[in-house]
């Protein structure tokens, strides 16, 4: 599934086009990493991806900065793209399904055990 297919509103389409233009200016290894980050981040999102916009922006900013400093993408992200995505998505407080289930589990237990 391509992320374009998941996009709904046209306002977002515009934003994504802007992102895509920024991505094209990155070195090749960064572009490849961006593709992976993209796929991974969607796993932490609802289906519209609106809550990902600020994250995408932040991550792209980071990539642009480190690319400008001449670092390789592996140096910049530490090679673990999935872990990196987990960390950024977590940092931004994006609620994922897993988080919802986690909260549900603890709340149900508290409710059912509470007298």
């Amino acid at each position: 599934m391509n992320f374009w297919e998941k996009i709904t509103g046209s306002d977002m389409k515009k934003e994504f086009q802007a992102f895509e233009q920024r991505v094209q200016k990155l070195p090749a290894d960064y572009r490849a990493a961006w593709e992976q980050i993209n796929t991974n981040l969607w796993a932490h999102s609802d289906f519209t991806g609106r809550n990902l916009m600020p994250i995408f922006d932040g991550v792209l900013g980071l990539l642009e900065e480190t690319a400008a400093e001449g670092q390789s993408v592996v140096e910049a992200l530490g090679g673990d793209i999935k872990g990196f995505c987990l960390a950024v998505a977590g940092d931004e407080g994006t609620p994922t399904y897993r988080d919802k289930w986690r909260a549900q589990l603890n709340n149900n237990i508290a409710r059912k055990l509470g007298k």
Partner: peptide, 14 residues
């Protein structure tokens, strides 16, 4: 039992 069942439900979802 209560806690076990909630855990099982969570694990099946994850």
């Amino acid at each position: 039992q209560i806690v076990y069942k909630e855990i099982q439900r969570y694990l099946i979802k994850v």
